[in-house]
Design a protein around this nucleic acid. Structure first.
Lengths: 182, 182
DNA sequence: ACCTGAACACCGTTCAAGT
DNA sequence: ACCTGAACACCGTTCAAGT
């Protein structure tokens, strides 16, 4: 029933990442988790970089699916983005802070993640990028604990959403879900 | 003329960071730069974490000074933020992605960096946080190469600025520069 | 096809000792 | 006050070899 050994390596890496933090994702620690010697990993995956790229890809797929399920308006979409990131903080950071390796990324994954954002802006790609930047920035600063402990972040998100909601009033399906990346 | 040895260590770390990237900032590489053995560093600084905290503090001071000099409107402020980050990408990343060690941070530094943002929103702290998130997010994604190579980021910034400019029209000095952090 | 053991060139950090 | 040498417990990765 096991797909392939490579998949199991990435699964184990994800488990360690979420349970013990990014510092614990080590080829040797990973080998221990799989009850194997570290050099054996290299028969299944090229190296640590490839493991990180695989995890980044997973994160993109899952976040994309969550956003696609968060229907309609900007507030709902933004709340879904924030919730997913806070629920998977290490995976989110891993996926957002590294440059995306577009070779070997299943085609359409990037565009699928972008689609809900494009939809909410009525196909305006500059607006979609601005909203992505806004959501990523607020999440990233929150995950990095950069706000004072008593900061009212719900208020900051509400303000941000109102600013963009006024600006990009949802045109009624002006652009029929063009598949493209942000 | 040399201030103290600790300052020289942090200077060397900054040189290596900007010239060779964050992976090169190593206690051993740092010792080599100072023509010293690695264990000697520990007589001047507690460890690598303290070096990173010192660099983060420097970045905050310098970015704060630049923002304070970028007068008045949101567009100018945003452009200054982006320009500084792109000119010091490694230092910016280091400063933005780690949680801020508020013990041992010179008092007022955090508030000083926040002040220009609070000013542009007329003292609205939720709006200031939203704008910080926006600027950080767009910069962070750009530094991580997450936009497609042909993306028009100037357009995304322009859109973002317009959204917030409409929302938070600059009240004429409603709040006289309250010193507080974001 | 899958795994091992030994090895290489690295890390951060500690500690006893030297001037 | 400032520095060194040896050491410890780690890294990622390669390679010849074994089943």
């Amino acid at each position: 029933m096991k797909a392939n050994r490579r998949g199991e390596v990435v699964d184990a890496a994800e488990r360690i990442l979420e349970r013990e933090g990014s510092g614990a994702v080590t080829m040797r620690r990973l080998a221990e988790e799989l009850r194997i010697q570290a050099p054996s990993l290299y028969k299944h995956i090229a190296g640590k970089t490839e493991i990180e790229a695989a995890l980044q890809q997973r994160a993109l797929e899952r976040l994309g699916a969550v956003l696609a399920g968060a229907s309609g308006d900007l507030a709902t979409l933004a709340a879904a983005y924030r919730r997913w990131a806070l629920e998977h903080p290490r995976l989110y950071e891993l996926s957002a802070r590294h440059s995306l390796d577009r070779r070997g990324l299943a085609p359409g994954v990037e565009a699928a993640a972008a689609e809900p954002l494009l939809k909410v802006t009525g196909g305006n790609i500059a607006a979609a990028r601005a909203i992505w930047g806004l959501a990523h920035g607020l999440v990233d600063l929150e995950l990095a604990n950069r706000f004072p402990p008593d900061a009212d972040l719900d208020a900051a998100w509400a303000h941000a959403i109102r600013a963009f909601a006024i600006y990009c009033t949802p045109q009624p399906e002006s652009d029929p879900a063009q598949a493209r990346a942000l």
